[in-house]
């Protein structure tokens, strides 16, 4: 890792770790979904940013993780959050094995549509199989223990803004480190090579379809772990988590942060959560404003927030060049 990036990462973790007492309860609860979404989006961006495959069904894995949390804590009565996270990853993988085996054969719009279709199938399953999933009522996620500690003396909010917050920060930081290792590995290199040109990647011995499939599995596991982290604060696994608009929101967050940068999805999760909260406090038509923001990003800053500094630098340099050359060359 380059020194600057490592320092920035450490500074961000330290700032987030120190934040709760300064922010107070409300704002700290607001930050909680950032960790779950951050992890889920790291997974999404392995496919999107590194693999060139835009999934419109990633929410199904988030939902799978949330339902795994509900089953483990509510049905099996196992309270350990470590067990919840492992079960979520397993559920994500189990779902991704058949779905990914089919989707990894396709790219571009076909991949997007296929993931969308599977996401909607999964949503219907959660919605209709009332006896198994609770239908539109969803399933309750009970409060877990963290590293075997129950924190009985804390009420729900104190638990969430205290131990749970730091625990999720640590999980997100560790998983970000793991993802960093993955994208820097030869596997990550092969994934980027096939995004650029699958045929040439094959000529160099890359097994393109398997590379995509493995990326799909990793992406799903991250999505599901993120989903389990999201489900504890809300206390509910809800079929709407798997709805296709939620998948769209995940893609939006990634675009907002910048899919071309490793940290883009993390920044995107933070920016989206804050932006949504702010817009919701302004107007009931907040979705309209979010749509405008999305349009603005795609048109004016396609690299997202992470790409903003480079964009501004380029603009400034261009302005300086214009100022230095008062007589522009005539257009040819």
């Amino acid at each position: 890792m380059r020194g600057g990036a490592l320092l920035a990462a450490l500074a961000a973790v330290a700032a987030l770790a120190a934040a709760p007492p300064l922010l107070g309860e409300y704002r700290t609860t607001l930050l909680l979904p950032v960790f779950g979404y951050g992890v889920a989006l790291l997974g999404l961006n392995l496919l999107f940013g590194y693999g060139g495959l835009v999934s419109f069904g990633h929410a199904m894995f988030v939902a799978a993780g949330a339902y795994a949390a509900a089953v483990v804590t509510g049905v099996w009565r196992i309270e350990s959050f470590e067990a919840v996270l492992l079960a979520a990853a397993a559920a994500g993988l189990a779902l991704a094995l058949p779905v990914g085996a089919l989707c990894a054969r396709y790219t571009k719009i076909f991949f997007g549509m296929l993931t969308l279709a599977f996401g909607m199938l999964f949503h219907s399953f959660l919605f209709k199989f009332y006896g198994l999933t609770g239908g539109d009522q969803g399933m309750r996620v009970r409060r877990p223990t963290l590293l075997g500690l129950e924190f009985e003396e804390l009420d729900k909010t104190a638990f969430l803004v205290g131990p749970y917050y730091w625990y999720c920060l640590a999980v997100a930081a560790l998983l970000a480190l793991l993802m960093w290792r993955i994208v820097r590995s030869p596997f990550g290199l092969a994934l980027r090579a096939q995004r650029d040109n699958p045929r040439k990647a094959e000529y160099l011995g890359v097994e393109v379809r398997r590379t995509r499939f493995v990326a799909f599995l990793v992406s799903a596991a991250f999505g599901a772990v993120g989903g389990a982290m999201l489900a504890v604060p809300t206390g509910l696994a809800d079929p709407e988590l798997a709805y296709w608009t939620h998948s769209g929101t995940l893609v939006f967050m990634t675009l907002l942060g910048g899919f071309a940068h490793f940290a883009g999805p993390l920044l995107g999760a933070l920016a989206y959560v804050l932006l949504q909260d702010w817009l919701m406090s302004l107007t009931p038509y907040w979705r309209l404003l979010l749509g405008a923001v999305l349009a603005l990003i795609v048109l004016a800053c396609p690299q997202g927030l992470m790409g903003l500094p480079a964009l501004l630098r380029a603009r400034l340099a261009a302005r300086r060049r214009r100022a230095a050359a008062p007589h522009p060359a005539p257009a040819e």
Binding site: P186, L189, A190, R192, A193, A201, L204, G205, V206, E207
Partner: peptide, 11 residues
């Protein structure tokens, strides 16, 4: 560097 390193891993 990444371009040239890729095939050392695939083979």
């Amino acid at each position: 560097a990444e371009n040239v390193a890729l095939p050392t891993w695939t083979r």
